[in-house]
């Protein structure tokens, strides 16, 4: 599989003049994310943040243009064949399967698992801090714990790109920061490339990241998050941050 060929290394992501029609809105994306970096995507709702991730993950197919991951053309590849794991805001887990099985599906889509698989699964569950909760069903977990399971599954899948689609948006501030720190640690350890869509600009500051600001289906501004979110950032972005900016 693609993933196992390049373990513990990030892949570059490139969208090359990608056009996509979202209902009436014509979207256009041109972007490069360097291997083993973190990219944060912010912008008003409906600006195309989730669509951008869906194009990379293969849930949406570009009308024209190319999607390259690790310099390989993935424009039309099926989601399961892309070197990508994605964590959604909710519904990351199958409600009728326990934690270990939900993570195990990352190893084998028919849940036929080898000894090595079981070991990897336990290790991933331990890494996200859920050791001892392997047999729990999702209903017996808190919101944060459920997202940890999804991250553990991404770990056992061992793909070089991790996409977070507002994965922590439904968590409280403290828990969100905790999860971001966990992602930061795992990113440092595995070197995977992370792209995250977020509503909170300070998420981008918590981890050293590149910031992409989306508006009306286009990337309106991009650059290192620290610069972009400072007083010297683009006027466009300061306007979007608005009240928050003046409160700071």
């Amino acid at each position: 599989m693609i993933a196992s060929a390049r373990p513990h290394k990030g892949a570059s992501i490139r969208l090359d003049a990608v056009d996509f029609d979202f209902g009436d809105m014509a979207m256009h994306f041109d972007l490069v994310v360097e291997p083993s970096t973190i990219a944060a995507i912010i912008g008003p709702s409906g600006s195309g943040k989730s669509t951008l991730l869906n194009l990379i993950a293969g849930f949406e197919i570009a009308k024209t243009g190319r999607v390259l991951i690790d310099d390989t053309d993935m424009t039309d590849a099926a989601p399961a064949l892309r070197p990508v794991s994605m964590v959604f805001q909710d519904n990351n887990l199958f409600a009728h399967l326990d934690v270990a099985s939900n993570v195990g599906l990352g190893r084998s889509p028919n849940l036929k698992l080898s000894e090595a698989d079981h070991a990897a699964i336990s290790e991933a569950i331990r890494k996200v801090g859920l050791a001892g909760k392997e047999k729990r069903k999702p209903e017996a977990l808190s919101g944060g714990e459920r997202q940890r399971v999804a991250i553990a599954r991404a770990l056992v899948r061992n793909r070089p790109v991790l996409l977070l689609d507002e994965a922590f948006a439904s968590l409280g501030p403290a828990l969100r920061h905790e999860m971001l720190d966990l992602v930061g640690e795992l990113q440092t350890e595995t070197g995977m490339t992370v792209m995250m869509v977020t509503h909170h600009p300070d998420d981008a500051l918590r981890l050293p990241s590149m910031l992409f600001f989306l508006e009306n289906g286009k990337i309106a501004a991009s650059g290192p998050a620290k610069e972009m979110l400072s007083d010297k950032g683009p006027a466009l972005l300061r306007k979007y941050l608005g009240a928050k900016d003046s409160a700071l």
Binding site: A57, G58, F59, A78, P79, A80, L81, V84, S85, M86, F88, N91, N92, F94, H96, L97, L105, G106, P109, N110, L111, R157
Partner: peptide, 25 residues
């Protein structure tokens, strides 16, 4: 609607999907 994206990402399809995901529901 809950499972489609997840299944296509994890490559769970056909009989596997019916047995593991759809049947229990």
């Amino acid at each position: 609607s809950r499972h489609n994206r997840l299944c296509s990402q994890l490559g769970i399809a056909g009989w596997n999907r019916f047995r593991l995901i759809d049947w229990p529901v």
